[in-house]
């Protein structure tokens, strides 16, 4: 198993945090992991992205031109990463904010209304966790339990009360990835 996962979105959409969760979860499972952020001015309000590499083998390149999975949270991210995804790879689109359709037939696309689900849960900051859930259901790079344990570890003390709602958001994401759910739409 070797996945190069890109998560991308506006600053504040929590892609860096979601990436850290995956990396911590991978570490917890004894896998090789690397969390490679975009940094600097990009992080100040623009579109930020992070690459998370999870592998059973020692990780070589930290530069990933063609991710096996791209999680795109906003339109600029969609435009940047749709062409980059490796053939046979997975694209997870935040359909709450991105109406555009994918013009590639060599990748798997999963549309998840992450912001809508987040709002349904009564908190507008959970879209990233919904996307993490959708990712885990489609590509089980790490287990849900590991993500939850990692969440416990990296949420600051004062935010621990948010653990449950984060878990719920992730669960909703997992359910989304099932083709039987109407809120998700699988195309290939």
């Amino acid at each position: 198993m070797h996945e190069d996962i890109v998560l991308s979105g506006f600053g504040g959409q929590g892609v860096m945090f979601a990436g850290q969760l995956l990396a911590y979860a991978g570490l917890r499972e004894g896998k090789h992991v690397a969390w490679v952020p975009s940094y600097g001015p990009e992080m100040r309000g623009g579109t930020a992205h992070v690459t998370v590499v999870v592998s059973d083998e020692e990780i070589g390149s930290l530069i990933v031109a063609h991710p096996t999975v791209a999680v795109v949270m906003n339109l600029p991210s969609f435009e940047r990463f749709v062409p980059a995804v490796k053939p046979g790879g997975l694209l997870i689109v935040n359909s709450s904010l991105i109406a555009e359709t994918v013009d590639r037939d060599d990748i798997l696309t999963l549309r998840v209304p992450a912001n809508d689900i987040s709002l349904e849960l009564g908190n507008d900051r959970l879209a990233n966790m919904v996307m993490v859930g959708a990712l885990l259901a489609s590509r089980p790079v790490v287990s849900k339990e590991s993500v939850v344990e990692s969440l416990k570890k990296i949420l600051p003390e004062r935010r621990q009360r948010l653990l449950e709602i984060n878990e719920q958001a992730m669960q909703r994401g997992i359910e989304c990835s099932s083709p039987s759910r109407s809120s998700a739409q699988l195309t290939d």
């Binding site: 850290q20 990396a23 570490l27 090789h32 992991v33 690397a34 969390w35 490679v36 952020p37 940094y39 990780i59 930290l62 530069i63």
Partner: peptide, 10 residues
């Protein structure tokens, strides 16, 4: 280099 500085690894 910037990448070694910024990347998180175990």
């Amino acid at each position: 280099d910037g990448l070694i500085g910024q990347v998180m690894e175990p």
